[in-house]
Simulated assay, not measured.
Amino acid sequence: MTQTQPAEEPGRRTGVVERLTQILDVFAVGPDAMTLEEITALGGLPRSTTFRLLRQLVEMRWLEHDERGYQLGQRIRHLGQRVESHARLRAAAAATIEQLQRATAGVVHLVILDGDSIEMLDKLGGTTAPTIPTNVGVRFRAEDSVAGRAMLSALAPERVDRLIESRGAVSDTSTLHRRLSTIRHRRGLAVTTDDMPWDLRGIGAPILGSSGPVAAISVGLPGRSANVERFAPLITRAAASISRQYSAAHRAAAQ
């Protein structure tokens, strides 16, 4: 039986992003794999429009298409895994970074390494938080922060070079490598240096997984003369605790 195709609402043209969203929303309610006809019926768009959008989504790897029909693609699965991993990391770190913030009265950050940049996942500091000019979701070059340097120090020098070179600009990494070597001798503890573009001092430590750094935490205080070195034992224990809790959560999720 031929199904009547729903017409778009008179006087209103939906944008491309809205129509693509309508198609992707179908996969939240439908089976894992669907035919063109099933997606058309659930998505509420004309068949020709649905087919064109599906083809674009397949080309962009948001969807895949085989003999079973259309299904979520590698790109969207990777995004889902990334979000899930971040949620596990934040859950594993939550209690520990709260304790660290109370013990230091500083501003505590939880960050991840994404390519050659860091991304802020959490920031705790109570009334002192506004004194540190950072926000959740903001990204910085990894070498410009103590948390980023702590994670870079846990990577092989060749891997660091590849990350920096991925920007497409020629960079002299010799100074950075000397700084990372110092951090490695301090067992991963990075401390703010004069070349960093911040009116503060911080200390950072990596959170390690089975294949290297998965994140880092840092404690910062305003002013370039703040004594953050005294927090070294606290942040070392906190990073080790989060590493254990995250690894346990990761193993449980894989089972």
Rank of each mutant, 00 (worst) to 15 (best):
E98D: 14
S153F: 11
R139D: 01
I203F: 03
G80N: 15
I217S: 04
S211H: 12
T175S: 07
E18K: 02
D172R: 13
G80S: 13
A240H: 12
Y246H: 13
I203G: 03
R251Y: 08
V108W: 08
G223E: 09
Q245A: 12
Q101E: 15
R251E: 06
R201A: 01
S166N: 08
A156E: 13
A147C: 15
D122E: 15
L45N: 13
A169Y: 12
E59M: 07
D161S: 12
R159Q: 12
D144G: 02
L36Q: 06
L54S: 04
Q71D: 01
G220H: 14
A105P: 00
V108E: 06
A248Y: 11
H78T: 04
T173P: 00
R187W: 09
P6L: 05
A93G: 11
S153N: 01
A254V: 00
S48N: 06
E59P: 00
A154V: 07
V108I: 10
E119H: 09
V26L: 02
E165V: 07
I23T: 05
L79H: 12
A147E: 15
L89W: 02
D195F: 07
T134K: 06
R102W: 14
L42T: 10
S243C: 06
A91L: 14
L79T: 06
T35L: 04
R47E: 10
R179A: 10
S218A: 10
D195E: 14
G202L: 01
Q74F: 13
H65A: 10
A216C: 02
V191R: 13
R186Q: 15
A169F: 11
E98F: 04
A215S: 05
Q99W: 11
R141K: 10
P46M: 03
M196F: 09
T134D: 01
S241T: 14
A92E: 07
I217H: 07
A238L: 09
V29Y: 04
F27T: 03
L45Y: 08
L42M: 14
H65G: 03
G125C: 01
E84P: 00
I164M: 15
L180N: 14
D161M: 09
L24S: 04
A93L: 11
R224M: 12
Q255N: 12
L234Y: 04
A215H: 01
L24P: 00
D116K: 02
A240S: 15
F51P: 00
L110A: 03
R178L: 11
T40E: 15
A190D: 03
R162D: 11
T192F: 04
V58E: 14
V108T: 12
L234I: 07
A93N: 13
S48D: 05
D32S: 09
H177S: 09
T2P: 00
G148S: 10
S211K: 11
G43I: 01
S117F: 08
A87N: 09
R12D: 05
L63T: 01
I132D: 04
L234A: 09
N227V: 12
T35R: 06
P233N: 08
R162I: 00
A95K: 15
G137K: 05
G80M: 14
H65C: 09
G80W: 15
T4E: 11
H65W: 13
A95D: 15
